Computed example of a mutant assay.
Amino acid sequence: MSDIHSTREGAAPLGAQAPAGDLIKDATTQSFAVDVMDASQQTPVIVDFWAPWCGPCKQLTPILEKVVQQAQGAVRLVKMNIDEHPEIAQQLRVQSIPAVFAFKNGQPVDGFMGALPESQIKRFVETLLGGELAPTQSEQMLEAGAAAMDAGDIGAAAQAFAAVLQEDRENPKAIAGLARCYIASNDLDRATEVLGLADDKLADDPDIKGAIAALEIARSGPAEPENDLSPLLAKLEADPKDHETRIEVAIALNAAGDRDGATDHLIESIRLDRAWNEEAARTQLLQFFEAWGPMDEATQAGRRKLSSVLFS
């Protein structure tokens, strides 16, 4: 790291600390020694190498700022525009941006390249600090909303998710959570309106994708759970290879909350004829998985059953 030390111009004595409120700042080649090398003797410093033309940088930097602010002074963020100040990035052999380095005691100790989701950024900072960050008020409200949804209290869940959106209009968990509340209330137009808050940069977020899948299922399925499946089941008994009816049964069972039953019917359809109607049963099952979420027990069990059929 001798090259980095060679950039010191007017550096403060080792151990000097940046002002307490100066958690996030822009640095130059000349200020790097003070802003990073010296400051990291007291507090870990994260350095974000970015450029104005870099799209992923525009996604990553706000997340870094949010997580650093959440740490409440336990870590600092220094941003370096490599177009204006390329020397430090060259010395660290940065080959692509965004590139992030964590410094402690004047030395780089960790880092990553590319834009990462907030959850991974938070783990990166927690590893740097050696402990978990305290949950923010928004995170607490999101947990309360999820708990209310699990308990069937849709009104309380909606209030919690809406409160988060008042502070952060682009919070994907709050957008998805509120949309699911409207879906559960069969207010699909309002659900669509809420999901419209998610712009292109959130399109690949798993919570948003799951809520969109749940909305599509709600629009394509019955408005109310089917109470009497006897006619459909009688058709299946007469013709087990009636795939269209079997998918109708699966959709009705899902609407009624019987995820395992819905899965089993779709698995049976795949077992009998996977290619039917361009793999319609498998497509429907994967849509269920996305709507239910990857951690749902029915999703995990269903994926095991699907793998067993596909690779048997």
Rank of each mutant, 00 (worst) to 15 (best):
L188P: 06
E170D: 12
N186E: 12
G145W: 12
L128S: 06
A115W: 11
D153S: 04
R190N: 15
A160V: 00
L128W: 05
A151E: 15
G114C: 06
A174W: 01
D153C: 11
T127M: 00
N186Y: 05
D150N: 14
C181S: 13
V194A: 02
V194K: 03
A147Y: 02
A163F: 01
E118A: 10
F112E: 07
P108G: 06
L188S: 06
T136L: 09
R180G: 01
M113D: 03
P108T: 06
V164R: 03
E126A: 12
Q166N: 13
E170M: 14
E167M: 10
K122L: 04
F161N: 02
L128K: 03
A162S: 15
N186V: 13
A174H: 07
D153Q: 14
G145N: 07
L195C: 03
D110K: 00
L133I: 02
A157N: 13
G131K: 12
A163M: 01
C181F: 02
T127S: 12
L116H: 07
L178H: 08
I183Q: 07
R123T: 14
V125N: 06
R190T: 14
E126I: 08
R123V: 14
S185W: 03
G130F: 00
A176E: 05
G130N: 02
R123L: 13
L128V: 13
Q159W: 05
T127K: 14
D187C: 09
R190E: 15
G114E: 01
T192C: 04
L128R: 05
I121Q: 06
L128C: 03
A156S: 15
D187R: 10
Q159L: 12
E143L: 13
E193M: 10
E167G: 10
A158K: 07
A184G: 06
L178G: 06
K173A: 14
R169K: 14
E118G: 12
P172F: 03
Q140F: 03
A157R: 05
V194P: 00
D168W: 00
Q140N: 10
I175R: 07
A151L: 11
E167Y: 00
D189V: 14
Q166Y: 04
M141L: 15
K173R: 13
S185G: 07
I175S: 04
F161Y: 14
A160Q: 12
P172L: 09
Q120D: 15
G155I: 08
I154L: 06
E126F: 10
A134T: 11
K173C: 00
M113K: 09
L165M: 12
I175H: 03
P135D: 10
T136P: 02
I183L: 02
S185Y: 01
A147W: 01
I183W: 09
Q159T: 09
A151V: 03
P135C: 11
L195H: 05
E118R: 11
S138G: 12
R190I: 03
P117A: 11
E167N: 14
Q166W: 05
I121H: 04
P172I: 12
A176M: 08
A162T: 13
E167L: 11
A115C: 10
D110I: 12
A160P: 05
A174F: 11
G131Q: 10
K122Y: 00
S138C: 07
T127E: 10
Q137G: 09
L116E: 07
E126R: 02
A148M: 08
F112N: 05
E193Q: 15
G131M: 06
V194Q: 08
A144Y: 00
L142F: 06
A148Y: 06
L142Q: 08
L133V: 04
F124H: 04
